[in-house]
Amino acid sequence: MTTQLLLVQALNGLQLGILLFLVAAGLTLVFGVMDFINLAHGVQYMLGAYIGAALAAATGSFWWGLLLGLPAALAAGLVLEVLVFRHLYRRDHLAQVLATFGVILFLNEGVKVVWGAAPLQVPIPALLQGGIEIMPGLQYPIYRVAVLAAGVATGGLLWWLVERTRAGMLVRAGATNPQMVAALGVDVGRLFTLVFAFGAMLAGFAGILAGPIFSVEPGMGDNVLILAFVVIVIGGIGSIRGAFLAALLVGLIDTLGKSMAPDLLRLVLDPSAARQAGAALASMLVYVAMAAILAFRPAGLFPVRTG
């Protein structure tokens, strides 16, 4: 393991973390404001990736795919909210889990019907092709740097929206005490629809960005969803700041663990056993980290709701 490889893996980890943050941000806000657990948030990421890929293929430009994909992802979120999710807010978590699970089954199968089961490839836009030298003799793809930058910028924008605007103030207040906000005359239902659609768009944005890096395929949202859950549990449900830090942490642990665990174990085991045990250990690391953090802080690193 050289420093160069370590640097590349760390950047890959940060970039996975950024994508996770974009997915987790919507999830944590939706849960924070409305106490609504949405398993279908992962398929909104998938839907974004598919819509982006289809629009990019149709228009011949990644940028048009991005530009048109965002409102399309927002609209998809609104449709789902009106058709299904709206009827679940007053139900218990069990009902929410199952109904949104049904939505996952439908949409995972739906994209198979529309686009086929084979993964779609999305070409990297011409403007962002190639690499840049981040260290003497070390190239890193420009597109991945751009994803990092876009994610950090979106994170900043989100922070500003939540912390510095009136709508954000209502969202924060709603996460802390929704009954009080409703009693003060705010239409919490409409506030939630807005938050929900915005969260769906963020997840779709992450999906569009991920298109050229990962393959676009049915079920691609499921793993992201579960990692996003880990992120918001570690970060503290409802906390954007917690989600941001936890997403970077999870991205780094996952990526560095997968590349380093087999090498580290080779110090004590023979190579084939080290490879096997390393792979098992690496895929467990994120969850072990979550368990360790929760053992000390059951409400996550930055709990929002007190009492």
């Binding site: 849960f31 579960i226 880990v230 969850y287 072990v288 929760l294």
Partner: peptide, 27 residues
């Protein structure tokens, strides 16, 4: 140690942990 929605998510995460462990059992 947790409850409500945390519990749902944590059991899900442990389930995934077991899932990935079995997928890496090459033997």
């Amino acid at each position: 140690r947790t409850s409500g929605v945390h519990f749902i998510m944590i059991t899900l995460a442990f389930g995934q942990m077991a899932f990935f462990t079995t997928s890496s059992l090459a033997a």
